[in-house]
Design a protein around this nucleic acid. Structure first.
Lengths: 187, 187
DNA sequence: ACCTGAACACCGTTCAAGT
DNA sequence: ACCTGAACACCGTTCAAGT
């Protein structure tokens, strides 16, 4: 059988990807090396290159994997303000689970640039509901995404001072600021 | 004279720092290595460690250097909306000069966390003008900074689709959104 | 098909030695 | 005081060889 001498099972991309996600969660993107990942999988470093073209490709895969784990709020018929807030909360929860990965995606946005992704479609739907005209959808969603990402990266990297009145007050303020800005924008 | 065998002059921190800024501008943060920097300075790699404790410390120095080059708009007595926009423009211009460094600072915010820095003091002044109460100044400025940084990182990393009606329309929209949000916030 | 070991060209950094 | 060369423990990746 063409099977590793050190393991019983052959490698799978899922195994590689989810182990990489875990290592990054634990030690940051700069803490991940092909060699450490291979050791964690109990495999020769070079075996990885049979499933992944390069470290950069691996990181792309890892970002895609993490993005798929993000769970979008359904269309529950609520007002757009509430749905936008729910979406922001989904970002927030996901970012807290994978802070290091979030920072990486934010500075390597090619990895999430595909506007067919659910996350963009959800944002489009909510912005339509808010009355944003069709040709402005892309622009507007990119801006909102950048704002929320910026906030979350700052927060997960400790750039947000704690508020004595509650941990999530900064986040609430940020979301309210955006929503208020949108309201007076469409008026 | 205790002078390098390869150069006429001894190294200075300024020389190290500004050369590092240039290398990062040219090839990104991951393109900078101590060895390349030393080669660029025509010096032995180990000489750098006499002026800088580690690569991480060097990057801190580099961020500080770049931040000092950022030129703040003066208090010209204009309405807060205009001054806030002018400040955002200053960010924008600076980010376009050092895009790689901006991404790095944004994910390593310890480097700019000091609220005594001019940039924070300028933001505080404008927010006071906008009627933000004193105990909310820090929170509010952190949020706005995160928004604008998020936008600029997205933009400088190619995450913003081009607008046929003008390059800066996305930026204008973003700034207007924030200002409108602030207006209805204080009302 | 899938895995491996040796090798190459790089890293950051320590340390003892030079002037 | 400032600089250097050799060395150590790491990297990502190529390539020819194994099953």
């Amino acid at each position: 059988m063409a099977v590793s001498a050190r393991r019983g099972t052959p490698l799978t991309i899922e195994e590689i990807s989810s182990t990489a996600v875990r290592l990054i969660d634990e030690g940051g993107v700069e803490g991940l090396s092909m060699r450490k990942l291979a050791a964690e999988l109990d495999v020769n470093p070079m075996s990885l290159y049979h499933h992944v073209e390069s470290k950069e490709a691996l990181l792309g895969l890892v970002c895609a994997t993490a993005a798929q784990r993000m769970h979008m709020p359904p269309d529950d018929g609520a007002p757009w303000q509430d749905q936008l807030k729910a979406l922001a909360l989904a970002y927030h929860r996901h970012a807290r689970e994978h802070p290091a990965l979030w920072g990486y995606v934010h500075t390597h946005p090619q990895l999430i640039n595909d506007h067919r992704l659910v996350i963009w479609q959800t944002l489009y739907r909510i912005l339509r509901l808010a009355g944003v005209p069709e040709p402005e959808l892309r622009r507007t969603s990119e801006i909102l995404n950048a704002f929320v990402s910026g906030f979350i990266v700052a927060e997960t990297h400790g750039h947000m001072s704690d508020d004595p009145e509650g941990v999530d007050r900064n986040f609430d303020t940020a979301v309210h600021l955006i929503i208020n800005g949108m309201v007076s924008f469409s008026a």
